[in-house]
Design a protein around this nucleic acid. Sequence first.
DNA 1: GTCTATATGAAGATAGAC
DNA 2: GTCTATCTTCATATAGAC
Lengths: 171, 171
Amino acid sequence: MTAALDLFAGHGVSATSLQMIADALGVTKAAVYHQFNTKDEIVLAVAEAEMMRIEAALEVAEAEEDRLHARETLLAWVVDLAIERRRLVSVLQFDPVIIRLLGEQEQFLQVIIRLYSFLMDDGTGEQARVQAAMLSAAIGGTVANPLVDDIAPDILRAALMQLSRLILGLS
Amino acid sequence: MTAALDLFAGHGVSATSLQMIADALGVTKAAVYHQFNTKDEIVLAVAEAEMMRIEAALEVAEAEEDRLHARETLLAWVVDLAIERRRLVSVLQFDPVIIRLLGEQEQFLQVIIRLYSFLMDDGTGEQARVQAAMLSAAIGGTVANPLVDDIAPDILRAALMQLSRLILGLS
DNA sequence: GTCTATATGAAGATAGAC
DNA sequence: GTCTATCTTCATATAGAC
């Protein structure tokens, strides 16, 4: 799954063949098919593993008493996660195959809804949806940009936290 | 090219075959190959046409005398362009094939550099690069999000202009 | 310009031996 | 679990008639 994700990140899901994944692992296609029945299953497994990281952050935030403080905590987790996995963010957020899969799987939709609900303080109006779109775009899109490849994580974190607070009206 | 771009936007470049493009046009693959020698040529032509829209905005801004006012003008053009072509933005900004092509073609790199230089007031330091990444992520990523599909253009425009000014420190 | 027909290769996927 | 070998389908791309 690590090999697959790295290849997905570099070429996109559609342009990554099972042969490429097998080659990266030094095995044959048949060996890969022993673990996963279809290519979609690989994509699904990879997406699921990443989604679990978001879910972990949600559990922590939802356990906090002070709601305002919890939003800050969740934000910090999400920003850190994005920075830590900057190479992988763009494929997970923007690849058409991933997007299609996320939309088809109820489990994923639930996590995404939980995430946005929490960050947006349960708002579902136009303003909340625009804020949500801006927030995920700003965080995900920024770390994925080659322009910031050599920027230190803490600089990036500070800039993104400040921007996120501005978007959410937290400061 | 319109048919190709629409398909690229929906499936990504790699997952779009010449057969799909031909079918959308109601002709055969051979007819498409009469106009373009390779698939890459189609992608290149499509990217070039979009890049020319950015260049047009640049010409207008660069012709203005007041630099500060020119930045505002350019920003407004770019935001409007993104909103107008929201369905297409994500493929143009995030598809691995497009990114590779843009990086290989000197003509495209020049336009991108001109765009960022102007918006960042010629800064090339860490702060300027982070700002540039945040700006393009925020604008491009926001309009591409399905969450804002039904938001009216002027609401989106107002939100994005305000956010852009915050990122650039213009307000 | 568009067609039919075709070449060539690589994709996803399976069968069955070890 | 991994291999070789194979199947089927579809990809890019070309040849040549109309």
